[in-house]
Protein backbone atom coordinates (compact mmCIF):
# COMPACT_ATOMS: atom_id res chain seq x y z
CA UNK A 1 0.00 0.00 0.00
CA UNK A 2 1.29 3.41 -0.97
CA UNK A 3 1.67 5.82 1.94
CA UNK A 4 -0.14 9.06 1.48
CA UNK A 5 2.19 12.07 1.60
CA UNK A 6 1.62 14.06 4.78
CA UNK A 7 0.88 17.76 4.39
CA UNK A 8 4.10 19.64 4.93
CA UNK A 9 3.88 21.91 7.97
CA UNK A 10 7.50 21.92 9.14
CA UNK A 11 10.18 23.58 6.94
CA UNK A 12 12.49 20.90 5.54
CA UNK A 13 15.58 22.63 6.83
CA UNK A 14 14.35 22.07 10.39
CA UNK A 15 14.38 18.32 9.80
CA UNK A 16 18.03 18.66 8.88
CA UNK A 17 18.82 20.64 12.02
CA UNK A 18 16.84 18.20 14.14
CA UNK A 19 18.81 15.33 12.62
CA UNK A 20 22.04 17.08 13.60
CA UNK A 21 20.81 17.42 17.19
CA UNK A 22 19.94 13.73 17.38
CA UNK A 23 23.36 12.88 15.97
CA UNK A 24 25.05 15.09 18.50
CA UNK A 25 23.28 13.26 21.34
CA UNK A 26 24.01 9.86 19.84
CA UNK A 27 27.66 10.15 18.78
CA UNK A 28 29.15 10.42 22.31
CA UNK A 29 27.18 7.31 23.33
CA UNK A 30 28.50 5.47 20.30
CA UNK A 31 32.00 6.67 21.17
CA UNK A 32 31.66 5.36 24.69
CA UNK A 33 30.08 2.03 23.79
CA UNK A 34 32.58 1.54 20.92
CA UNK A 35 35.46 1.80 23.36
CA UNK A 36 34.09 -0.63 25.94
CA UNK A 37 36.69 -3.37 26.62
CA UNK A 38 33.97 -6.07 26.73
CA UNK A 39 36.41 -8.90 27.61
CA UNK A 40 37.87 -7.05 30.56
CA UNK A 41 34.54 -5.72 31.78
CA UNK A 42 34.05 -8.24 34.62
CA UNK A 43 37.55 -7.61 35.95
CA UNK A 44 37.29 -3.82 35.68
CA UNK A 45 33.91 -3.65 37.37
CA UNK A 46 34.98 -6.16 40.03
CA UNK A 47 37.93 -4.02 41.13
CA UNK A 48 37.72 -3.34 44.90
CA UNK A 49 38.03 0.43 44.34
CA UNK A 50 35.18 0.29 41.81
CA UNK A 51 33.05 -1.76 44.18
CA UNK A 52 33.76 0.87 46.85
CA UNK A 53 32.59 3.61 44.48
CA UNK A 54 29.44 1.65 43.67
CA UNK A 55 28.70 1.15 47.35
CA UNK A 56 29.28 4.85 48.06
CA UNK A 57 27.13 5.90 45.12
CA UNK A 58 24.32 3.64 46.35
CA UNK A 59 24.58 5.08 49.87
CA UNK A 60 24.79 8.72 48.84
CA UNK A 61 22.12 8.61 46.12
CA UNK A 62 19.62 6.67 48.24
CA UNK A 63 20.47 8.77 51.31
CA UNK A 64 19.97 11.97 49.32
CA UNK A 65 16.65 10.68 47.94
CA UNK A 66 15.38 9.84 51.42
CA UNK A 67 16.51 13.21 52.76
CA UNK A 68 14.94 14.98 49.77
CA UNK A 69 11.67 13.14 50.43
CA UNK A 70 11.68 14.08 54.12
CA UNK A 71 12.44 17.74 53.36
CA UNK A 72 10.91 18.13 49.92
CA UNK A 73 7.45 16.53 50.25
CA UNK A 74 6.34 18.90 53.04
CA UNK A 75 7.75 21.84 51.07
CA UNK A 76 5.88 20.78 47.92
CA UNK A 77 2.60 20.42 49.85
CA UNK A 78 3.01 23.79 51.57
CA UNK A 79 3.95 25.53 48.31
CA UNK A 80 0.99 24.03 46.47
CA UNK A 81 -1.66 24.27 49.15
CA UNK A 82 -1.12 27.28 51.37
CA UNK A 83 -0.51 30.92 50.66
CA UNK A 84 1.98 32.90 52.69
CA UNK A 85 4.00 36.03 52.12
CA UNK A 86 7.13 35.34 50.12
CA UNK A 87 5.81 32.18 48.50
CA UNK A 88 7.13 33.23 45.09
CA UNK A 89 10.51 33.91 46.64
CA UNK A 90 10.59 30.44 48.17
CA UNK A 91 9.62 28.92 44.85
CA UNK A 92 12.53 30.74 43.21
CA UNK A 93 14.87 29.53 45.92
CA UNK A 94 13.79 25.94 45.25
CA UNK A 95 14.79 26.34 41.61
CA UNK A 96 18.17 27.89 42.41
CA UNK A 97 20.17 24.62 42.67
CA UNK A 98 18.90 23.73 39.18
CA UNK A 99 20.63 26.71 37.60
CA UNK A 100 23.47 27.27 40.03
CA UNK A 101 26.81 25.70 39.03
CA UNK A 102 27.16 22.69 41.38
CA UNK A 103 30.71 23.77 42.30
CA UNK A 104 29.29 27.01 43.67
CA UNK A 105 26.68 25.02 45.57
CA UNK A 106 29.45 22.88 47.05
CA UNK A 107 31.45 25.95 48.04
CA UNK A 108 28.38 27.50 49.64
CA UNK A 109 27.78 24.32 51.61
CA UNK A 110 31.41 24.45 52.75
CA UNK A 111 30.98 27.98 54.08
CA UNK A 112 27.73 27.05 55.80
CA UNK A 113 28.43 23.56 57.09
CA UNK A 114 32.24 23.47 57.17
CA UNK A 115 34.01 23.33 60.51
CA UNK A 116 34.18 27.14 60.52
CA UNK A 117 30.81 27.69 58.83
CA UNK A 118 27.79 29.47 60.27
CA UNK A 119 26.05 26.18 61.05
CA UNK A 120 29.09 23.92 60.93
CA UNK A 121 30.99 25.67 63.74
CA UNK A 122 28.27 25.36 66.41
CA UNK A 123 27.61 21.80 65.21
CA UNK A 124 31.28 20.93 65.64
CA UNK A 125 31.45 22.51 69.10
CA UNK A 126 28.30 20.78 70.24
CA UNK A 127 28.87 17.28 68.79
CA UNK A 128 32.36 17.12 67.30
CA UNK A 129 30.72 16.25 63.97
CA UNK A 130 32.58 17.33 60.84
CA UNK A 131 30.50 17.13 57.66
CA UNK A 132 32.95 18.12 54.88
CA UNK A 133 35.01 15.27 53.48
CA UNK A 134 32.69 12.67 54.99
CA UNK A 135 30.13 10.32 53.45
CA UNK A 136 27.42 12.30 55.24
CA UNK A 137 28.78 15.40 53.50
CA UNK A 138 28.49 13.65 50.12
CA UNK A 139 24.84 12.86 50.95
CA UNK A 140 24.21 16.52 51.84
CA UNK A 141 25.86 17.75 48.64
CA UNK A 142 23.76 15.37 46.52
CA UNK A 143 20.60 16.39 48.40
CA UNK A 144 21.26 20.08 47.72
CA UNK A 145 21.40 19.63 43.96
CA UNK A 146 18.63 17.02 43.63
CA UNK A 147 15.98 18.41 45.98
CA UNK A 148 14.43 20.71 43.32
CA UNK A 149 13.54 17.71 41.14
CA UNK A 150 11.25 16.28 43.81
CA UNK A 151 9.71 19.58 44.90
CA UNK A 152 9.00 20.78 41.38
CA UNK A 153 7.51 17.45 40.21
CA UNK A 154 5.27 16.96 43.24
CA UNK A 155 4.20 20.60 43.46
CA UNK A 156 3.17 20.61 39.80
CA UNK A 157 1.12 17.45 40.35
CA UNK A 158 -0.58 18.93 43.44
CA UNK A 159 -1.35 22.14 41.58
CA UNK A 160 -3.06 20.11 38.86
CA UNK A 161 -5.29 18.36 41.39
CA UNK A 162 -8.92 19.48 41.89
CA UNK A 163 -8.96 20.86 45.46
CA UNK A 164 -12.71 20.27 45.62
CA UNK A 165 -12.06 16.55 46.02
CA UNK A 166 -10.24 17.37 49.24
CA UNK A 167 -13.19 19.52 50.31
CA UNK A 168 -15.48 16.56 49.64
CA UNK A 169 -13.30 14.52 51.99
CA UNK A 170 -13.65 17.29 54.57
CA UNK A 171 -17.45 17.11 54.40
CA UNK A 172 -17.10 13.41 55.22
CA UNK A 173 -15.38 14.33 58.47
CA UNK A 174 -11.74 13.97 57.43
CA UNK A 175 -9.19 16.24 59.09
CA UNK A 176 -6.24 17.72 57.23
CA UNK A 177 -3.93 14.77 58.00
CA UNK A 178 -6.48 12.22 56.84
CA UNK A 179 -7.13 14.22 53.67
CA UNK A 180 -3.40 14.45 52.94
CA UNK A 181 -2.80 10.77 53.64
CA UNK A 182 -5.89 9.25 52.04
CA UNK A 183 -6.88 11.68 49.26
CA UNK A 184 -4.12 14.07 48.24
CA UNK A 185 -0.99 11.92 48.34
CA UNK A 186 -2.57 8.83 46.74
CA UNK A 187 -3.81 11.03 43.90
CA UNK A 188 -0.29 12.31 43.21
CA UNK A 189 1.48 9.03 44.04
CA UNK A 190 2.68 8.44 40.44
CA UNK A 191 4.21 11.91 40.38
CA UNK A 192 5.84 11.37 43.77
CA UNK A 193 7.33 8.14 42.40
CA UNK A 194 8.71 9.79 39.27
CA UNK A 195 9.93 12.75 41.33
CA UNK A 196 11.81 10.38 43.63
CA UNK A 197 13.31 8.57 40.66
CA UNK A 198 14.48 11.83 39.05
CA UNK A 199 15.91 12.95 42.38
CA UNK A 200 17.77 9.70 42.75
CA UNK A 201 19.13 9.87 39.20
CA UNK A 202 20.35 13.42 39.74
CA UNK A 203 21.95 12.47 43.08
CA UNK A 204 23.65 9.49 41.45
CA UNK A 205 25.24 11.72 38.83
CA UNK A 206 26.27 14.45 41.26
CA UNK A 207 29.90 15.55 40.84
CA UNK A 208 30.63 19.27 41.30
CA UNK A 209 29.08 19.95 44.70
CA UNK A 210 30.35 16.61 46.01
CA UNK A 211 33.99 17.10 45.03
CA UNK A 212 33.91 20.67 46.38
CA UNK A 213 32.19 19.99 49.68
CA UNK A 214 33.03 16.34 50.37
CA UNK A 215 36.26 15.93 48.44
CA UNK A 216 37.47 12.90 46.51
CA UNK A 217 38.41 10.40 49.20
CA UNK A 218 38.41 6.73 48.08
CA UNK A 219 36.05 4.69 50.23
CA UNK A 220 34.50 7.80 51.82
CA UNK A 221 33.36 10.28 49.21
CA UNK A 222 34.59 8.96 45.86
CA UNK A 223 31.30 8.05 44.20
CA UNK A 224 30.97 6.62 40.68
CA UNK A 225 31.12 9.98 38.83
CA UNK A 226 34.26 10.92 40.79
CA UNK A 227 35.73 7.50 40.08
CA UNK A 228 35.11 8.03 36.35
CA UNK A 229 36.92 11.38 36.57
CA UNK A 230 39.90 9.85 38.36
CA UNK A 231 40.09 6.82 36.07
CA UNK A 232 40.18 9.04 32.97
CA UNK A 233 43.60 10.28 34.14
CA UNK A 234 45.36 6.93 34.28
CA UNK A 235 43.00 4.00 33.55
CA UNK A 236 40.85 4.78 30.50
CA UNK A 237 39.29 1.28 30.12
CA UNK A 238 38.05 1.52 33.69
CA UNK A 239 36.55 4.98 33.02
CA UNK A 240 34.76 3.58 29.97
CA UNK A 241 33.46 0.60 31.96
CA UNK A 242 32.12 2.86 34.72
CA UNK A 243 30.66 5.19 32.11
CA UNK A 244 28.82 2.27 30.52
CA UNK A 245 27.45 1.29 33.92
CA UNK A 246 26.06 4.80 34.47
CA UNK A 247 24.58 4.92 30.95
CA UNK A 248 22.76 1.64 31.58
CA UNK A 249 21.38 2.97 34.87
CA UNK A 250 20.28 6.20 33.16
CA UNK A 251 18.50 4.26 30.40
CA UNK A 252 16.78 2.20 33.09
CA UNK A 253 15.53 5.41 34.71
CA UNK A 254 14.15 6.66 31.41
CA UNK A 255 12.34 3.40 30.78
CA UNK A 256 10.84 3.56 34.28
CA UNK A 257 9.69 7.14 33.70
CA UNK A 258 8.27 6.57 30.23
CA UNK A 259 4.89 8.10 29.63
CA UNK A 260 5.14 10.13 32.80
CA UNK A 261 8.04 12.53 32.64
CA UNK A 262 8.28 12.42 28.88
CA UNK A 263 5.43 11.54 26.56
CA UNK A 264 5.56 8.29 24.65
CA UNK A 265 2.85 9.09 22.11
Amino acid sequence: MRRRPRPLTVPRVLHLAAGLAVGYLLVPLVGLVGNVPWRELPRLLGDPLVLDAMRLSAITSIGATVLAAVLGLPLAVVLARSSFPGRRLVRGLVLLPLVLPPVVGGAALLFALGRGGILGAPLYRATGLVLPFSTAGAVLAATFVSLPFLVVTVEAALAGLDPRRELAAATLGAGSWTILRRVTLPAVAPSVASGLLLTWARALGEFGATITFAGNLPGRTRTLPLAVFVALEHDRPKAVALGLLLVVVALGVLVALRGRWWRTS
Binding site: D162, R164, R165, L167, A168, A169, A170, T171, L172, G173, A174, G175, R182, V183
Partner: peptide, 17 residues
Protein backbone atom coordinates in the same frame (compact mmCIF):
# COMPACT_ATOMS: atom_id res chain seq x y z
CA UNK B 1 -15.09 23.70 59.17
CA UNK B 2 -16.90 21.16 56.98
CA UNK B 3 -15.47 18.17 58.84
CA UNK B 4 -17.20 19.30 62.04
CA UNK B 5 -20.56 20.12 60.44
CA UNK B 6 -21.33 16.50 59.65
CA UNK B 7 -23.52 17.26 56.67
CA UNK B 8 -23.88 14.58 54.04
CA UNK B 9 -23.13 16.21 50.71
CA UNK B 10 -23.61 14.94 47.19
CA UNK B 11 -21.84 17.40 44.90
CA UNK B 12 -23.09 17.96 41.39
CA UNK B 13 -19.85 16.51 40.02
CA UNK B 14 -19.90 13.88 42.80
CA UNK B 15 -16.15 14.14 43.57
CA UNK B 16 -15.74 10.44 44.23
CA UNK B 17 -12.22 9.29 45.07
Amino acid sequence: PPAERRFGVVFQDLLLF
